[in-house]
Design a protein around this nucleic acid. Structure first.
Lengths: 140, 140
DNA sequence: ACTTACTCCTCTAGCGACTAGAGGATGTGT
DNA sequence: ACACATCCTCTAGTCGCTAGAGGAGTAAGT
């Protein structure tokens, strides 16, 4: 459990080796002790922290937000309004992104469906991109 | 219509001035003629090209894909299978992104809903991020 | 003991698609 | 004549890594 080399903590946390070193460099992960041969030695705490980071990154949280979340995690007696608000912001952002991707999906489907694979002169894909007014959603 | 300065073509195409110069630099937009005082002078063709680029960027196409699409647009007699396949790829990617965002949305909703704004020690947001097994979707 | 193969170290540079800012020239309106 | 907007080039920064060079330490097999 303790004194894992970077490769093992990488495998277990699913965070790539250079990324772990990068996280150390930007101060997201504390610099661990080193072996006699100057290798990083990680413990269970580091593994938990890395898993936390990786999970949050997967969920689309930015490094800065994760920094805040980690500070909160380190101080469990603080009020959690901030964590909640970060998650709420993220949710709003995700909803917005879903909405615009749905519009995009419709537009792409119209493009792809309308093209009969002849030549570019008659291609709906090119046509739609060239002429904004042929869009399904003129707002953008 | 012709001999617009960069600011005007920017306003009309909705592409920012430095971005237009950047597109010129990377060879996405041909370098226009210059005025006596060394200012770029754009014509209707450039405006159309920029609008095409902007529209495609909005739709999430990468610069490289746009480069291909522009080449196709410039040669209308080529078969359009490639344009079609680029759009199809993009559609698949968009669908995948929508799906993962929907899963994310659920997870964030569970986080936000489960937290009663007390203190971090009881916060579901932190808890879920720290412990992967509390996720709704264990795959990721 | 020696070799091979692997992991690890530091360091620098690169990615994509811009964006920001410095420092200066040109153009427009009053 | 002057103010002010717009333009020019150039360099460097953003974010979150990723790739590669060049070298050192370590584990397993012979």
């Amino acid at each position: 459990m303790t004194d894992m080399p970077i490769g093992e903590v990488s495998r277990r946390s699913q965070v790539k080796v250079p990324t772990i070193r990068y996280y150390e460099q930007i101060g997201l992960l504390p610099a661990p002790p080193r072996s006699e041969g100057n290798r990083r030695l990680y413990g269970a705490r580091d593994l938990r922290r890395l898993s936390f980071i990786r999970h949050a990154r997967d969920l689309g949280f930015e490094i800065d937000a994760i920094r805040t979340l980690l500070t909160l995690q380190d101080n469990p007696s603080l009020p959690c309004a901030e964590a909640d608000s970060i998650a709420r912001d993220k949710l709003a952002e995700v909803n917005a992104r879903i909405e615009s991707l749905m519009a995009l999906k419709e537009e792409l489907e119209a493009m792809v469906g309308g093209c009969g694979h002849r030549c570019v002169g008659e291609c709906r894909v090119i046509e739609v991109l060239a002429d904004h007014h042929k869009c399904l959603h003129a707002e953008h």
